[in-house]
């Protein structure tokens, strides 16, 4: 899972060499991919570094909410699948940190910035996963959204990031399919299972709608992130595609799409059916009640239900493993040859 739904980037192209910049922008417009040895604006290098770092952070933190349920997975196959899925996320984090390492930031510094709150990760991991059905919803909705997003990122312009996206997308197909299988199983199951699934859906539908980030600026296609093909589709366009795919699927499964109010722990306190969630007569596009963007920004600023816990667990793991890294760094040159 991921969420390169986009770290805040303030990019000022006026500081660059204007001739080289024009040539660079022409190449991008022509669909040429940029490889690390090519000239690129500083802002592009830094922007790609931050984007890959944010994406990597999201994978590493994204491993935590689902990791909580590995020990309780209700069948051996689900236990294996969930372990493999969380492991994939660590793998994706490792590959994405590598992209940023090559752009100039050491991994250790990135891991430390993450646990001291200097850098962020995707907002959706700050919500709780209190039941097994939440795991199904994360894999179905959040991974579904992530794949849609990453598919467009794989169409971007930076060679190392694009290569990584292709590999990640190949693996994430399994995450989504396994999530879909879990949701289908639960919704074909007992009364209790269906009720648990509806409740989990209510918790994750809002974060899924917000997954792609806030509404775009009107000229987003002319601004550097899209103009330089760091991302290739606007937030609102991705969100529409997500709605068109998942709203009818949820209704067919017998789920109700609600507008919910939540408490500080991220648990639903009241809900009503979302009347806006119907297809438009002419375009066929599905509507949705605009989510509470104040909540979105409140969570980004660190005040979501699980921000503190996620970062603390990551820090615990970092501190707990420090002696192993020290031992490795202390040198293994005196190592006896392997038998």
């Amino acid at each position: 899972m991921s969420g390169a739904a986009n770290p805040v980037m303030n990019i000022d192209p006026s500081l660059e060499d204007q001739d080289k910049l024009a040539e660079f922008e022409q190449r991008i417009a022509d669909g040429v991919l940029i490889e690390p040895g090519d000239w690129m604006p500083d802002a592009y290098r830094i922007g790609m570094l931050k984007m890959a770092e944010h994406h990597a952070n999201s994978e590493i933190i994204g491993a935590l909410p689902e990791g909580e349920w590995i020990t309780r997975a209700p069948s051996l196959r689900r236990k294996l699948a969930l372990t493999a899925k969380v492991q994939d996320e660590v793998g994706h984090g490792q590959m994405l940190y590598r992209v940023s390492q090559d752009l100039g930031k050491p991994r250790e510094e990135m891991l430390r910035d993450l646990i001291t709150g200097k850098t962020k990760y995707h907002n959706c991991f700050n919500y709780p996963a209190p039941t097994w059905a939440d795991i199904a919803m994360i894999q179905w909705l959040i991974d579904g959204a992530a794949i849609m997003n990453q598919k467009t990122l794989a169409d971007g312009a930076f060679g190392p990031y694009v290569r990584t996206m292709h590999r990640i997308n190949m693996e994430e197909a399994f995450h989504f399919k396994s999530g879909e299988d879990m949701v289908l199983t639960l919704m074909s199951g007992t009364k209790k299972q269906k009720a648990m699934t509806q409740e989990a859906f209510d918790r994750w539908w809002g974060p899924s709608i917000m997954f792609f980030g806030p509404h775009d600026k009107p000229n987003c296609e002319q601004l550097p992130p899209m103009k330089w093909r760091m991302k290739t589709e606007s937030n609102d366009s991705l969100r529409q595609r997500f709605l068109n795919r998942f709203a009818p699927a949820a209704l067919d499964l017998g789920l109700l799409i609600h507008v919910c109010e939540k408490d500080e722990e991220g648990m639903v306190t009241s809900k009503k059916v979302d009347e806006a969630c119907v297809p438009d007569d002419t375009t066929g596009n599905w509507g949705v009640t605009d989510p509470d963007w104040d909540e979105f920004f409140r969570v980004i600023r660190g005040n979501g239900p699980c921000n503190a816990h996620r970062v603390a667990l990551r820090r615990f793991s970092y501190e707990q493993g420090a002696w192993v890294r020290r031992a490795i760094a202390s040198g293994t040159s005196s190592l006896p040859p392997a038998a």
């Binding site: 294996l80 492991q87 984090g93 490792q94 707990q320 420090a322 192993v324 890294r325």
Partner: peptide, 26 residues
């Protein structure tokens, strides 16, 4: 061991040990 997935001391090590935890479960 699968409970460790995502919390290992080194990313590469985390991945490798998770593969082996999956072996054991398999």
């Amino acid at each position: 061991q699968s409970d460790w997935t995502g919390l290992g001391p080194i990313l590469e090590e985390d991945i490798a040990s998770s593969s082996m935890a999956q072996d054991d479960l398999s």
